[in-house]
């Protein structure tokens, strides 16, 4: 994902001030030289980010990068690009069936090499030299990725900001937290997750209510045999938890399979590259447990209150 790409490279991101999207950012490339001179700045990568049709593909991410960033891409064939050359991600290379040349914005470029990246966003893209990217997208640079020695990032950010009124330097984490696109995605996913959580609880309540209704006789018998209300509540919650844990294991296995399948689908050019991290899996596990407990609590209380008299009344006697 784009955020992963930014996170894994550089401590500070410098863009045009006030832009809503890095694709619209336009800054002067020469500022990179000034930033490099600031004490404790280790490296400055310059990037031009754009998107354009490539051959018959309607839209592909184009990464114009300074030569010192080429090493970020693991070459699996050929060499890094010179002027009027590009290197293509493995996915794009497969989709275009190992092209010798590609056409970007009506200009033809020779394919100098093929790279592989673990970041799907990059693996489905085309990397080009800064000069060529500049001529395609008509801008000097989109952003700088600044790598520092182990030092206070805020202090260096302030020094970079002081270089030019038109730029904005933020630590990578700050940038990702405040980047509108990511904010929208995060808020949307939070809302969807909350709704899914509530729907999940309601679903469990509804399902367990049916289960309790179906097993009314069983709970009535248990009450008449001297089972306490607490024992019945614990029994029902335990049953729900076992189902929840099994469902969780199935869901995790299924998610891995689906994400893996999506990752290999050429249609998505590697842009959808979901990952289930251990911390995510653990969070989901605990959320499942909470959902199962909350969802089964009310039906379990109903079950514990089944009147054994109903067993007699079902016989029709009085």
């Amino acid at each position: 994902m784009y955020s992963t790409m930014l996170k894994t490279d550089g401590d500070i991101i410098v863009t045009q001030k006030g832009i809503s999207d890095t694709f619209f950012s336009d800054i002067n490339r020469s500022l990179g030289l000034k930033i490099e001179k600031i004490e404790n700045v280790k490296k400055v990568n310059t990037l031009i980010l754009g998107a354009s049709p490539v051959n018959n593909l309607p839209i592909v991410g184009i990464y114009g990068v300074s030569k010192n960033r080429f090493e970020n891409y693991r070459l699996i064939r050929g060499k890094y690009p010179d002027l009027h050359e590009v290197m293509v991600g493995e996915k794009i290379n497969n989709i275009l069936q190992a092209p010798k040349t590609v056409t970007i914005s009506k200009k033809e470029f020779k394919v100098s090499g093929v790279y592989k990246s673990d970041i799907g966003f990059e693996d489905g893209g085309v990397v080009i030299g800064l000069e060529d990217a500049s001529s395609i997208f008509h801008k000097s640079a989109s952003l700088f990725l600044v790598t520092l020695d182990d030092i206070n990032k805020q202090d260096i950010s302030a020094q970079i900001n002081a270089l030019d009124d038109g730029i904005e330097a933020k630590t990578t984490d700050e940038f990702i937290d405040n980047y509108n696109q990511f904010k929208i995605i995060k808020i949307s996913s939070d809302v969807i997750s909350s709704l899914a959580f509530l729907m999940g609880i309601l679903g469990i309540v509804s399902m367990m209510s049916m289960v309790v209704n179906d097993r009314k006789v069983e709970f009535g018998i248990m009450r008449s045999l001297g089972f306490s209300s607490r024992a019945i509540i614990i029994k029902l919650i335990a049953e729900t938890l076992i189902v929840a844990i099994l469902a969780y294991l199935c869901a995790i296995a299924l998610s891995y399979l689906i994400l893996d399948a999506i990752g290999h689908m050429e249609k998505f050019q590697g842009y959808i590259n979901g990952d289930i991290t251990p911390s995510l899996a653990i969070s989901v596990f605990f959320i499942s447990i909470i959902m199962a407990t909350l969802g089964s609590l009310l039906p379990a209380i109903w079950a514990s209150r089944v009147d054994p008299m109903s067993l007699i009344l079902q016989g029709g006697a009085r």
Binding site: V217, E218, G220, I221, R223, S224, L225, G226, F227, S228, S229, P308, L311, I312, Q314, G315, A317
Partner: peptide, 21 residues
């Protein structure tokens, strides 16, 4: 106080329907 425990130790029930689980 604990009618469930009392029932468990002292009382058994047989209903018209067997009500086996």
């Amino acid at each position: 106080k604990n009618i469930d425990e009392f029932r468990k130790k002292n009382i058994g029930f047989v209903f018209q329907f067997h009500y086996l689980i």
